[in-house]
Design a protein around this nucleic acid. Sequence first.
DNA 1: TGTGACATATAAGTCTGACTTTTTCCGTCG
DNA 2: CGACGGAAAAAGTCAGACTTATATGTCACA
Lengths: 233, 233
Amino acid sequence: MTTPGRGLHGHVLDTLGPAITAGEYPPGSVLRTDELAQHFEVSRSVMREAVRVLESMHLVESRRRVGVTVRPKAEWNVYDPQVIRWRLAGADRPHQLRSLTVLRSAVEPVAAGLAARHATAEQCAELTQCALGMVANSRGHKLEEYLVHDIAFHRVILNASGNEMFARLGDVVAEVLAGRTHHEVMFEDPDPAAVTLHVQVAEAVREGDATRAEELTREITVGALQELDILAP
Amino acid sequence: MTTPGRGLHGHVLDTLGPAITAGEYPPGSVLRTDELAQHFEVSRSVMREAVRVLESMHLVESRRRVGVTVRPKAEWNVYDPQVIRWRLAGADRPHQLRSLTVLRSAVEPVAAGLAARHATAEQCAELTQCALGMVANSRGHKLEEYLVHDIAFHRVILNASGNEMFARLGDVVAEVLAGRTHHEVMFEDPDPAAVTLHVQVAEAVREGDATRAEELTREITVGALQELDILAP
DNA sequence: TGTGACATATAAGTCTGACTTTTTCCGTCG
DNA sequence: CGACGGAAAAAGTCAGACTTATATGTCACA
């Protein structure tokens, strides 16, 4: 994660950001800089910097003679890692998790296909290592160790795709995977079929078989969708 | 687009942002707030607000006794609409356009599939209107009119998917489509095959045929990839 | 009664200067 | 050569005065 609370304005954001993204201030709510500054016991300069950041995330809009207005959810920069983290930490978590999982299901298969074409030898090796690590920890309630390798696996795929937009989703995917293990129902060992699929994806990428890598990854993401009951009737 | 230059700090950002994203300051470069303030002829308060915004975009990092350090490209918030606009406006444009087109090729087919399931009657009607508008302007060098309907079409698809992450890519897609018409080679009328595909997608969504909507949209995006010579050898 | 111009209050925006705090760098001493 | 400690540099913070845009209410006039 990003270093939290680096400076006073960071502390303010850590409180205001979650509050806004949690919908505590409905769209159209008006905040006054001076009041906020008093409430958080910081100077107006600090408060203004915090507002500027919220503004750059399109969470609020600051207008003269009006104040700081909360924007409707549809305008938020929902790809901002900070915003994602705030929402995952709040009441919106389930909804956010579903959105992100759907996004994964779109992006990761394509990324895997690209990885099969562009991955370096080193990345292939890394990928194989990750898959092996997943296999090694797939039994015996070693969920944490499994998670580490799972996250690393998907990160390598996204990086190896050679597309910067995909690569930057590594953190998001990590967040989703971690969330699944930590917050959702995850008592048992991971699904053996999923483990096998990861091994096969690593194989396909190593062999440069883009179509197969894409198809196998699609199966993985379909599994993730099903876990959240996002099915196709 | 967002209102540009709303306030002094906005003007500073309009200059600094493009400069940084264009790579004018290599990663690791150190800027000093005071010097920047002098250079832009603004007060330190204003300069600090600008730096805070750049920091929230992960373009720079501000540390005591060091200064404001430019972060490596790999850490930028490349999904920030502002960052995307800055990069599209600069030397990085071709590269950024390719990245975004690949992203489209991953997202839009899945979005179309979801739209086929979730689209309201109103959205279906809107979609049909857009497709008709595209057909009507597909001949006779009416590129601008065609573009308007093309953008609207893809925006409706993304919105109708019911996924907020997809919906927020509407602006990005609009930017890419507009860029193709305005900056890239686009002398002739649009490809008739592409126009037909859009009409068929509208059909499939109307009929709730998710698989077909996804497959047809995939064909559209493949076309977009081919235009930029991003092929699969 | 409606409509336009104008005055006013309000909250953000800006600037300045003084002060604090953290952190790096460097020189000295063991 | 390493540890300790001081000094300097840059960001961070604060307080107060001033400016500017603008929403809103008022009043005259049609």
